[in-house]
């Protein structure tokens, strides 16, 4: 939790600097690629970094989407998604990074209408085998929404 934008940004940059190969951002500033379907966005990371064959990577992406009960969005594109679906797409994409250290930057900026962090933690639990650690960065004044987390 940070008091100012400057402090938050500084900390984010530090994190990126410390774990350059593992950091997997989930942020409004790191959007999904709009001219690719969601499953392709997710598969892209495996295809690029691990040279995983296209079909295998895409099958995997669809499988993970189904795991978070979002199999129906696999063939949709970014503009067609609601904020929850968009968040899950971004989260799964981040989880595709090898030994991922997921960095969620202001989750309530991605899903503005969320009352609490419950949705985010549930999604994270469903894919907890896919990442090494998860770090959520937000402002101090959003503390209430996080409850006891």
């Amino acid at each position: 939790m940070f008091d100012s934008e400057q402090a938050l940004n500084q900390s984010l940059h530090q994190f990126l600097h410390d774990y350059p190969l593992q950091v997997a951002p989930v942020s409004v500033d790191v959007p999904l690629i709009s001219n690719q379907d969601i499953y392709m966005n997710i598969a892209l990371i495996k295809q690029y970094h691990e040279d995983m064959p296209k079909r295998q990577a895409q099958r995997l992406a669809v499988e993970y989407l189904e795991r978070v009960d979002l199999g129906q969005i696999a063939y949709k594109r970014n503009p067609a998604l609601n904020p929850e679906e968009r968040f899950c797409g971004m989260l799964l994409r981040a989880a595709m990074v090898k030994d991922a250290m997921i960095l969620i930057d202001q989750p309530f900026k991605i899903i503005p209408h969320l009352k609490d962090i419950q949705f985010v933690t549930t999604a994270l639990k469903k894919i907890d085998d896919l990442y090494l650690s998860c770090h959520i960065y937000d402002y101090q004044w959003m503390k209430e929404k996080y409850g006891e987390l």
């Binding site: 350059p20 190969l21 997997a24 951002p25 500033d29 790191v30 959007p31 999904l32 690629i33 709009s34 001219n35 892209l44 990371i45 690029y48 970094h49 994409r93 990074v97």
Partner: peptide, 20 residues
């Protein structure tokens, strides 16, 4: 146009963030 739109949408930055 595709490249310009990707740049404006910060999708190029996304690729860089994922070390692509």
């Amino acid at each position: 146009t595709e490249m310009a739109v990707m740049k404006v949408n910060r999708e190029i930055k996304t690729l860089e963030m994922f070390r692509i």
